[in-house]
Design a protein around this nucleic acid. Structure first.
Length: 192
DNA sequence: TATTGGATCGCC
DNA sequence: GCGATCCAATAG
């Protein structure tokens, strides 16, 4: 089991450590889960791409809570994205979950996604939220104290199997190589 | 108060 | 390549 202290550590460290973790949801009596294979770190202090860069707002306030909370937002009016809040209270930082390898409840994921193709179920931040039934109602839950969503250690991923790159889909602070992924995993989201 | 653009995706 | 469609940030 993770501890609350784990999530209060520096964001880049938590981001890499979350590769290989299991993300589970229990929505409307349905359990679905997957292994985290791709993440991105966001840290308000120096990172103009982070929602928290300009300080707390109605949308991003959960990013400023202590580590371990769940931050979900709506992007492009259509898709949800799920984040793991990091660092102590008062610091606006989080790790975006960008891709999963499906584990449990795959038939439920297919129904929610209307997709036969396994790879397309969870190979992107919007896709995985749809597959696991994640929406803004889950924002503010705590990953260690929620009946709806949880994080548990699952696989060990050695540092030599972790790739890093610039983050996807942003226009500011593009030089930061804060995207981490498991090398060679087929569920890592496609580059656009 | 109005406009703009975004941590995306799927179909054209 | 483009449209869908909500909402925070910025401009006026």
């Amino acid at each position: 089991m993770y501890t609350r202290a784990f999530f209060n550590q520096p964001t880049l460290k938590v981001a890499k450590a979350l590769l290989g973790a299991k993300l589970s949801t229990f929505v409307k009596g349905v359990e679905t889960s997957g292994i985290i294979v791709e993440v991105e770190a966001y840290h308000g202090g120096i990172d103009r791409a982070s929602h928290s860069y300009g300080g707390p707002t109605g949308r991003n306030q959960v990013m400023f809570m202590e580590g371990g909370y769940c931050y979900v937002y709506l992007i492009y009016g259509i898709h949800h994205c799920v984040n793991v809040v990091t660092e102590p209270s008062g610091v606006g930082a989080a790790v975006l979950i960008r891709a999963l390898e499906p584990l449990e409840g795959i038939e439920s994921m297919r129904r929610r996604r209307k997709s036969k193709d396994i790879v397309s179920l969870t190979s992107g931040p919007g896709k995985l939220c749809q597959a696991l039934g994640i929406d803004k109602r889950l924002s503010g839950e705590h990953f260690l104290a929620s009946n709806l969503i949880s994080l548990t250690p699952y696989c060990k991923v050695s540092a030599s199997n972790i790739g890093a790159s610039r983050r996807i889909g942003i226009s500011k602070s593009t030089e930061l190589e804060w995207r981490y992924f498991i090398e060679g995993n087929q569920f890592v989201s496609p580059l656009r």
